[in-house]
Amino acid sequence: GQVNVNNTTYTFPTPKLAKEFAQKAAKKYNLTVHVSGNTVTVK
């Protein structure tokens, strides 16, 4: 799974890890998680 945070893309071996990372990043920066297919964007 891929996660985009502040124009930086992070790649994870599983969608589960990507989702967990996205949720932590969203909480940390007070942003929202947007899911589109296999790509998760935090903005």
Rank of each mutant, 00 (worst) to 15 (best):
K19D: 05
K19H: 11
E20Q: 13
Q23L: 13
K28N: 08
A25D: 01
F21E: 01
T39Y: 05
L31K: 04
V5A: 11
Q2R: 09
V40Q: 00
N30R: 08
V40T: 01
P13S: 12
V5N: 11
E20N: 07
V3L: 12
V42W: 05
V5Y: 12
K24S: 06
T14Q: 02
T32P: 05
F21D: 00
G37P: 00
V33F: 09
A18H: 00
Y29I: 04
G1M: 13
T11D: 03
P15F: 11
K28S: 05
G1W: 07
L31R: 05
H34D: 06
V42S: 01
E20L: 15
L17K: 09
N6I: 14
K43D: 07
V5I: 13
A18F: 02
L31H: 07
P13I: 06
K43I: 15
F21W: 15
K28W: 14
K27I: 08
T32H: 08
G1Q: 11
T41L: 06
L17P: 01
Q2I: 12
G1D: 11
K16N: 07
T14L: 03
P13L: 10
Y29D: 04
N30M: 07
P13G: 06
Q23P: 00
T41H: 06
S36K: 10
N6V: 14
A26Q: 10
N38R: 14
L31P: 01
T8S: 08
A22P: 00
V35P: 01
A25G: 02
T41F: 08
T8I: 14
V40L: 02
S36P: 00
N38A: 06
T32K: 08
K24M: 14
N7L: 15
A18Y: 00
V33H: 02
P13D: 09
V42H: 01
V33E: 00
S36L: 10
V3I: 12
Q2H: 12
K43T: 14
T32C: 13
V35E: 02
T14E: 03
T9A: 05
K24E: 06
P13Y: 05
F12M: 02
K27W: 07
L31W: 13
Q23A: 14
S36F: 10
L17S: 05
T32M: 08
P15I: 11
S36H: 11
K16L: 10
V3Y: 07
V3A: 12
V35A: 03
G37L: 04
T41K: 04
K19V: 08
G37N: 05
T39E: 05
T32V: 13
K24D: 04
N30G: 15
F21G: 01
T14K: 02
S36N: 12
A26W: 08
T11W: 13
N7R: 14
T32L: 08
P15S: 11
P15T: 10
Y10I: 06
T11I: 13
L31S: 04
Y29E: 04
N30H: 12
G37M: 04
N6L: 14
T41I: 13
Y10W: 09
Q23G: 05
K19T: 07
L31D: 03
T8Q: 09
N6R: 14
V35G: 01
E20F: 10
Y29A: 05
T39W: 03
N38M: 06
K28G: 04
N7K: 13
F21A: 03
N4M: 11
A25V: 15
K43V: 15
K19L: 13
V3H: 13
V3C: 14
Y10F: 10
T9H: 06
N4T: 12
K43P: 05
T9E: 05
